[in-house]
């Protein structure tokens, strides 16, 4: 079990908190005493051991995640010292965070835009000034507010889904071409479209009620 996920950082070594022996920064376990280590200060991609790219292989992400999660399962630490239990919990949490972000196209885009250096969301509240995006968002919501038939809602849902697919394609191209500004703008658009999908589902539920 020591260790499939050392690749990226194997040349960076720290000392194990338990036996003081050398251990790779990104390693889950100490190769000497097998004690679980604190989560490495790495990004989500590195944590799962994949390349930093928007076009991830979701099947591979699933496999890597479940493999790592198995190694960190609480049952394996039931008889260990409190410190090891706590560290394994931290590892599992860090891994879950990485998985949640990387498997979701919107969260992954948002994360990657930040990672590549543009601060899209300072302090969690970023005011969009891009009028085209806002006008589109306003018009879509207004349209949705007017509808009163399931048929019309289904049509809006289809349109929104098509828009989302377009944006995802464009995002992939933007990231591949190092167009971070473009990716940033598309990510904002995707957030509004994602929100719109949520609203569509709510409207559908309201109409059924």
């Amino acid at each position: 079990m020591n260790d499939a996920n050392v690749k990226a950082k194997e040349n960076t070594v720290k000392s194990c908190w338990s036996c003081k022996g050398p251990v790779a920064v990104a390693a889950l376990f100490c190769p000497t005493c097998e004690a679980v280590q604190a989560p490495a200060p790495v990004n989500h991609f590195e944590r799962l051991g994949i390349d930093v790219t928007y076009d991830v292989n979701t099947g591979a992400i699933d496999r890597l995640y479940f493999d790592l999660q198995r190694q960190l399962h609480p049952d394996r630490f039931a008889t260990k010292a409190p410190k090891e239990k706590a560290l394994s919990q931290q590892q599992a949490t860090a891994l879950n965070d990485a998985y949640e972000v990387l498997k979701d196209p919107l969260k992954r885009a948002d994360y990657l835009v930040h990672l590549l250096g543009i601060d899209v969301l300072p302090e969690g509240c970023n005011l969009v000034k891009d009028q085209a995006i806002l006008i589109e968002a306003m018009e879509m919501r207004e349209k949705l507010m007017m509808v009163d038939s399931m048929k019309a809602i289904t049509e809006i849902q289809r349109e929104t889904k098509a828009e989302i697919d377009d944006v995802l394609c464009a995002l992939s191209l933007a990231f591949a071409g190092d167009d971070i500004r473009g990716a940033c703008q598309l990510t904002t658009r995707l957030k509004y479209l994602d929100k719109m999908m949520g609203e569509v589902r709510q409207s559908r539920a309201r109409l059924l009620a």
């Binding site: 969301l121 969690g124 969009v128 806002l134 006008i135 968002a137 904002t188 957030k191």
Partner: peptide
């Protein structure tokens, strides 16, 4: 004035 906060998907005119 048309502004928005994408974090929550709000849009305000």
């Amino acid at each position: 004035g048309l502004v928005g906060a994408p974090a929550c998907g709000d849009v305000m005119k």
